[in-house]
């Protein structure tokens, strides 16, 4: 990694203190970042009564949410599903990126582009496509019953937690791949040779050099995937059915139908806290010291 190049300081003849230049950024951050987050917290402490906002601070929303079974279980299930999908995506994308970096040379860029292209196609529609593929008369079931493998379509394919899990894995793979690829490609090639030179088999080269130097990148991809999966309410709504409902759907319904924004805010904060905790843990586990030059 190249060291940050200090900007030439001395030769710019600005007549006012340089730090004043930060003021516009400060204002922007105040209005579009600090204020929304602050208001989210404040709202989560307010309440609703007969459709009217009650502006008095209390922890009632939180106590109520954590006290009832459904949101609690939904949060846990959402986090487990998101974790699982992000993990599976990492297990697919990381080895793939490693193979591409190590074994392909001319085809490398092509593979990278082919992985990224699906991201250009509307997210919503990619998710909807799985509905077409997994349905009772979808591509898979029709094919399987057509060739006589099945008598009846597989019901669990669509409107299930399986469908949500599969779709979330699907949308996660490109993100993990790009992050892992970027990290793996940055490892200087001579380090692989130095490891082999020191007597390390390919597997031990991987465990002692490649993984420690790329796990932070893999973790960034994993974290991105986790963030998408945790907060996605489109996928459960499209392919999840009743079984596949996730925490995000709960928040959206508080925003829409139920029109209880304070409760929605409290749910959001709980989601933020739990994912934040998880990501901190991931960052902790994958920390590596040292600087790549």
């Amino acid at each position: 990694m190249s060291a940050a190049i200090p900007a030439p300081r001395t030769s710019r003849g600005w007549s006012f203190p340089r730090r004043l230049a930060l003021v516009p950024i400060g204002l922007y951050a105040l209005v579009l970042v600090a204020l929304p987050n602050l208001l989210l917290i404040v709202y989560s402490l307010w309440g609703m009564e007969e459709g009217r906002l009650v502006r008095s601070l209390s922890l009632d929303n939180y106590l109520d949410i954590l006290g009832s079974r459904v949101p609690r279980e939904l949060l846990l299930r959402t986090i487990l599903t998101a974790l699982g999908a992000a993990l599976l995506a990492t297990l697919v994308a990381y080895p793939m990126a490693w193979f591409v970096v190590r074994r392909l040379s001319r085809a490398r860029l092509l593979v990278l582009i082919l992985v990224v292209v699906p991201l250009w196609i509307s997210y919503l529609v990619r998710v909807y496509a799985w509905k077409i593929i997994l349905g009772d008369q979808g591509v898979i079931n029709t094919a399987l019953t057509g060739i006589g493998v099945l008598d009846e379509p597989l019901g669990f394919l669509l409107y299930s937690r399986f469908a949500v899990f599969l779709t979330l894995t699907y949308v996660s793979i490109p993100f993990v791949f790009v992050a892992a690829y970027a990290a793996l490609e940055r490892i200087p090639k001579p380090l692989f040779e130095a490891a082999a030179d020191g007597g390390a088999s390919p597997w031990r080269t991987f465990t002692t050099v490649v993984w420690p130097l790329s796990r932070q990148g893999a973790a960034i991809g994993f974290a991105l995937a986790l963030l998408i999966c945790v907060g996605d309410y489109l996928t459960p709504a499209l392919v999840g059915g009743m079984d596949g409902t996730m925490f995000g759907n709960l928040i959206v319904s508080e925003f829409g139908l139920a029109n209880d924004w304070p409760r929605g805010a409290a749910l959001s904060i709980l989601m933020l806290l739990s994912t934040g905790l998880l990501l901190a843990l991931v960052a902790r586990i994958t920390r590596t010291e040292g600087v790549l030059e």
């Binding site: 200087p188 001579p190 040779e193 082999a196 020191g198």
Partner: peptide
């Protein structure tokens, strides 16, 4: 393969493991 040869190399750019 290199890892089964009793030969060691001092690399042109040193190739020290940055995380060790």
């Amino acid at each position: 393969p290199p890892y089964r040869r009793d030969v060691n190399t001092v690399f042109q750019g040193y190739a020290l493991f940055p995380h060790m």
